[in-house]
Design a protein around this nucleic acid. Sequence first.
DNA 1: GTTAGCATGTAAGGAGTTACATGATTTT
DNA 2: AAAATCATGTAACTCCTTACATGCTAAC
Lengths: 217, 217
Amino acid sequence: MGRRSGVLELAVLGLLREAPLHGYELRKRLNTVLGNFHALSYGSLYPALRDLQATGLIAEDAPSEPDQRPLTGRRGKVIYKLTAEGKERLQDLLSEAGPESWEDETFGVHFAFFGLTDAQTRLAILEGRRSRLEERRHTFRTALSRTRERLDSYTAELQRHGLESVEREVRWLNELIATERGKEERPAAAAADAPRPPAAPTVSDDAAPAVDPQREN
Amino acid sequence: MGRRSGVLELAVLGLLREAPLHGYELRKRLNTVLGNFHALSYGSLYPALRDLQATGLIAEDAPSEPDQRPLTGRRGKVIYKLTAEGKERLQDLLSEAGPESWEDETFGVHFAFFGLTDAQTRLAILEGRRSRLEERRHTFRTALSRTRERLDSYTAELQRHGLESVEREVRWLNELIATERGKEERPAAAAADAPRPPAAPTVSDDAAPAVDPQREN
DNA sequence: GTTAGCATGTAAGGAGTTACATGATTTT
DNA sequence: AAAATCATGTAACTCCTTACATGCTAAC
């Protein structure tokens, strides 16, 4: 008990939604398909799977080829599938729109499953992410405006590059948000609609957020 | 003992090199000046400082205003400075050019202290970072080339954006490396030379790296 | 028949966070 | 004199990694 962390749970449930999988394959997808680098290790994944099974959210799938699991000693593939409870839990996780869905470590996973997420939640997460990045942009700008002070040239260059990265990601989010709003207006169209916008208005940008720029203890 | 982690040690020693500081101020600089978001908490910093002091790498600085530290109960600012051993240790850390200096969590800190780092080490770190990113770019490209297969449009968009981010950072590193090489050729010039290049050749790019694309257990 | 890659797992521990607890100083 | 912010510290806990240990299966 207690080995189940937020984002890993969502990622596993989400991937198993598409198809039953065993741990080894699951890990590979976790490290590529999801915006999740940091290469999750087996030492994290397997205990998490055991825990999800213990809670009844996933279960062992009957292997299609019969003799896949030799009776000797319990070795061989263990293929997991979602249970009904697991599907419910997944829906709950997918409709959460809060800091736990738009911070660095989690945003990518939530985004990757937007295909299973309702339009309202998608928008809320994108906007939450954007305002998080706007905070960060503000921190960078503040730091850079003091450049003539204590910053040596390498530190300044690092800040400059960081600021540009954040600005780029904000523009990306602006485009995505515009596309999502577009979908809302004419909700017809096919189910799987490409999120790439034709030409984004590049919203006015700027204005400092009124948030803690130092992320308190 | 054992509360001292790699990158935090470097960051603290590096900042104290510039000027003696107390923990609270140290933390603020850690979260802005360094490319280090993730907002380090006091719960990490203070034990680390205690540990660094126990090892003799930092020491309490005599406060310039005498009565800063009231005798009652040991409260008030504790200003730390580098010891001679701390300076030595810092030099050792700064001349390390290995994975521990170019991974995501550490590269920013090493880069921020390039002003204290010798030219050879700077180049080695920049090149190490670049080849790390080239691996990642390869992973992204591989994942994207299978787009027509299992990737839904949101997952594909996430990969596309991730790939662009990596490509952008590789270009940045190419420019920096070119600048550093330029400095090597004519090693005259002022001590603090701005790292921004005039116009980078944008090296030919591409070619898949021969490295583990899955970062093994 | 042996190497390489697939596959599952456990134990120990590292690196950090949150929540708590306290007190000093500055501002309103 | 209350509130905000500066400042230091501890205990419990979380999440994850490393290193280890085992065995199966395909390819050479």
